[in-house]
Design a protein around this nucleic acid. Structure first.
Length: 206
DNA sequence: AATGTCATCAACCGCCTGTCG
DNA sequence: GCGACAGGCGGTTGATGACAT
């Protein structure tokens, strides 16, 4: 037995330093190997994730700007939930960030809309299909039929068809305007910082 | 000041895919 | 062709901080 127990949870600064050092040394491949040589009791997957989402020198820190948000929405309308695909088009942002951003904003949007509708439509109005009314919210079940039970459920055409069939669709203009209004003030301003870890390793992977 | 609620984000999990022997 | 393995991806969860009551 006695297989050494893996650490989970938040990363300590020391772990970051160690990981960054060894990635610098060996490159960002062979994560299981890296996990071993670093001596961190982390899985290779965990190391990779930490690197990709936090330590990578090309990452932008700070909030997603309205411009980036706009791009994300545009790309999402093309590709659906292909987060890594979208991330490739948004420099310095990870799939995880983009995913979180999308969730947050679609939820917010859905809630706002819900409020608006509640104030406009009397409670007695019947929604024969209430379960899908807010289907643009990620919380809403898009459970595929057996026929849909495959990865390409979110492929552009089908995804958008689903969306169009099941819900009120916001135009891109509406969404962009909304985002700009809500974010322009708060976000623009945060400076985009480089990953602090690279203070320690200025000559990074290259 | 204390408590509750909500938003955000880091990290994990499980499945899928690609590669190699 | 096939099985094993590593890496990648998308979905989900839990911790934390901010804000409201």
């Amino acid at each position: 037995m006695a297989q050494e127990e893996m650490r989970k949870g938040p990363w300590a600064e020391q772990e970051d330093l160690q990981l960054a050092f060894y990635v610098n040394l060996f490159g960002d491949r062979r994560w299981d190997f890296l996990a071993k040589v670093t001596g961190l009791r982390r899985t290779g997957k965990s190391c990779r994730l930490r690197w990709v989402n936090y330590l990578h020198p090309d990452l932008k820190l700070g909030k997603i700007t309205p411009q980036e948000g706009r791009l994300i929405l545009e790309l999402h309308s093309k590709w659906g939930n292909r987060w890594s695909r979208i991330a490739r088009e948004v420099p310095g942002r990870t799939d995880n960030e983009i995913k979180n951003y999308w969730r947050t904003h679609t939820r917010k949007k859905a809630q706002d809309e819900k409020k608006n509708m509640a104030s406009i439509i009397s409670p007695s109005s019947s929604f024969s299909n209430t379960s899908s009314f807010y289907s643009n919210s990620p919380d809403v079940d898009f459970t595929p039929s057996t026929e849909d039970n495959e990865r390409n459920i979110y492929d552009t055409g089908r995804f958008q068809k689903n969306v169009a069939e099941n819900m009120k669709v916001y135009s891109m203009d509406e969404i962009w305007k909304d985002i700009e209004l809500s974010e322009e003030n708060e976000t623009m301003c945060k400076p985009i910082m480089p990953s602090p870890i690279w203070d320690y390793f200025p000559n990074n992977l290259g």
